[in-house]
Design a protein around this nucleic acid. Structure first.
Lengths: 197, 197
DNA sequence: TGTACATCAGTGAACGCGCGTTCACTGATGTAC
DNA sequence: TGTACATCAGTGAACGCGCGTTCACTGATGTAC
């Protein structure tokens, strides 16, 4: 009877190394932050030598890119999976967005970090994935504002939600009694705006 | 006649090394990004050996912290220097904020990056400087909303402006014909909100 | 069912690199007398 | 005005480190016959 694939087996061939590297890389990322992401430690944790990773990725940068892609995919999925409430799906999508960032703070930082700012210009898949998240924000707007207001409206929403996500990750809600309530209050202001003096 | 202090002199004693290190560090930061900030290269550019920096800073981290402090100070100053217009000073302050981020993208990223997210918990000066920027956002609100709405209102504004700053830095306005106009449109939505469906 | 062999996912040793930091030192500066 | 000396901002050599990546290899796997 051939050995069933057990995760921590000592087989010479890992069997699923690519996936294992990504899972472990993601853990390492969340544990120690973007700057701690490094190929040797990932391999070490998986229980494999560093060069073996090169059979699955062209290098560390490719692993980081794969993680970012994975992140954008998950983010888009979770926004799409958010329910529609009586007022539409803007608020549920927004909450899903913030929830993703709070559950995956380091990954979120990686996705929007300096490292990829330049890459969005030329990497197609990354650009498209990011666009997909943006479109999601935008789509809720279409029946709500005039056509020429969609672009600023979408950027307005994305800015608000992106900023709130990052400030939350940074610990800005640390001393808040009820962080969720605060998040909802803030997002609600997107609809009403601040009353003029 | 004693040599006047000329910037690039070959004196044994530099005379103003601390300041020179910071200026150069800031240039390096903006040129090559947060991850490229490194002590040896800073010293090299100043024309001094690396260990000499230790007479002025406890290490690289101290230089980074000094840069972030400097950034928060400048940001607060530029917001405070913004004019008051007929509707108050929220919009001018917001524009000054975005302008700072656009002029100092890497510094802005450093200020709000992962590196200091933890540090804000214990570093007093950094925490206070960041608070000062936040207070500035908040102060414009006081005559505008009820007391209990100040906290969410301020977080709303800060999120919006922080997110917009970062997305702008990331190149989100790259294909915009008139970036300034877009920025103003987005910030204006903070007052009106998105009209409900 | 058994064997030869191609494939390729792993290993282990090694490389060069540039970093942050330490150390004992030396040269310049300015102050006390 | 001149000299001795303390101070301290610089130097230069060296350290250990861990990284990403390369290379020639070897072991396991599965397929063709």
């Amino acid at each position: 009877m051939p050995r069933k694939k057990s995760p921590q087996s000592d087989r010479y061939h890992h069997g699923n190394l690519r996936a294992a590297l990504l899972v472990t890389a993601r853990q390492l990322l969340e544990e120690n932050g973007v700057s701690a992401l490094n190929l040797r430690e990932i391999a070490r944790r998986v229980g494999v030598t560093a060069p073996s990773a090169y059979h699955h990725f062209s290098g560390l940068e490719a692993i980081a890119t794969a993680l970012a892609e994975l992140g954008f995919e998950e983010l888009a999925q979770q926004m799409e999976a958010a329910p529609t409430n009586e007022k539409g799906r803007l608020m549920p999508s927004g909450l899903a967005y913030i929830a993703f960032a709070r559950s995956n703070p380091a990954l979120y930082r990686l996705m929007f970090g300096e490292r990829f700012a330049a890459k969005f210009v030329d990497s197609d898949s990354l650009k498209m994935l990011r666009l997909r998240a943006y479109e999601r924000v935008k789509s809720g707007l279409e029946k709500r504002v005039s056509t020429e207001s969609i672009a600023p409206g979408a950027l307005f929403l994305w800015s608000l939600i992106h900023g709130l996500a990052l400030l939350t990750i940074d610990g800005q809600l640390r001393h808040e009694a009820d962080p969720e309530a605060m998040i909802i209050s803030v997002l609600r202001l997107a609809g009403t705006g601040l009353p003029p003096s």
